[in-house]
Design a binder for these strands. Structure first.
Length: 273
DNA sequence: TCGATCCTGTAG
DNA sequence: CTACAGGATCGA
């Protein structure tokens, strides 16, 4: 489910429903999500034994969700492939495949639901969190993500364009879908080393990233505000992703699927030379 | 840079 | 049954 737009939607939802809540207990249902780190698991389980932390604010860095507590500790949650995070009105009605959940003092619960269980939940001090996120690249929807900075970051880099976009140290938050969509919009071959892409095309790519993410955030927020759980976005129309063997809307060529870095890449062989 | 790995569900 | 899934990390 989640790339930057979906994680952003999750965060906005949490800001509405979880900020200000007091946590009475934290339950780790799948110990592995803390990284098989015994210390971490213990710290998490003892989190609420001593004090009753309240959720002070929520941040997002790339695909990382940061839940800041009144204790000055921060919970970092990464949804990976199938995670979701939301508040339910009654802790007793937790969904299946709950990896972890926080009980609030008012009876509600913050649920970390994750079918595949690949998502992670870890507890950090302010210092730790800063160190941890130092490697994460610029936020594509922030002011510092300028076309010039983006072009500069691509200079001399031999990584294929698609791999570059998905590298969280280069740009924070892009994943398999929106990387492919941005490359299509900018008419760039996903295999081409990013350092070999022309300046105008890099500029187009930068613009495409912004446009696509803005659009996708809108869709994701809409999907999330529907009652119940997240509705997976049929409302974000993809031009190439998941459309192998279908026709390109622009040139009518057959969309291809190739493998890069162990993931599927979809592209139009004619539009994206 | 490739492949395996962590998991479970679903489509073919 | 196999392949694949909107992610990230690790070792060869």
């Amino acid at each position: 489910m989640p790339e930057l737009p979906e994680v952003e939607a999750v965060c906005r939802n949490l800001r509405k429903h979880a900020v200000g809540a007091t946590i009475s207990s934290l339950h780790i249902e799948r110990p592995r999500i803390t990284g098989a780190n015994v210390e971490q698991a213990l710290a998490c389980s003892s989190l609420t034994k001593l004090d009753s932390p309240t959720i002070s604010h929520i941040d997002r860095r790339g695909k990382n969700i940061l839940i800041h507590l009144s204790t000055s500790q921060t919970i970092r949650i990464h949804l990976r492939m199938t995670g979701n995070l939301y508040v339910i009105p009654d802790y007793r009605f937790r969904p299946a495949a709950t990896s972890a959940w926080f009980e609030f003092t008012d009876g509600r619960a913050l649920v970390f639901q994750d079918t595949r269980g690949l998502g992670t939940l870890t507890l950090h001090s302010a210092d730790e969190i800063e160190k941890l996120l130092a490697k994460v690249g610029p936020e594509p929807l922030s002011r510092q993500f300028t076309a010039e900075a983006f072009i500069e970051s691509a200079k001399g880099v031999r990584q294929p364009a698609k791999i570059f976009l998905m590298d969280q140290r280069r740009v924070a938050g892009l994943g398999n879908i929106y990387a492919a969509e941005a490359l299509f919009a900018a008419r760039i071959n996903p295999r081409k080393p990013i350092g070999d892409v022309s300046r105008p095309k890099l500029k187009a790519l930068h613009a495409a990233i912004l446009a696509i993410l803005h659009d996708a955030v809108k869709s994701a927020v809409r999907a999330y505000s529907a009652p119940g759980a997240f509705r997976e976005g049929e409302d974000f129309a993809t031009a190439v992703y998941g459309r192998e063997a279908e026709r390109c809307h622009v040139c009518n060529s057959v969309i291809r699927r190739i493998t890069q870095g162990g993931r599927s890449t979809y592209y139009c062989p004619r539009c994206q030379r």
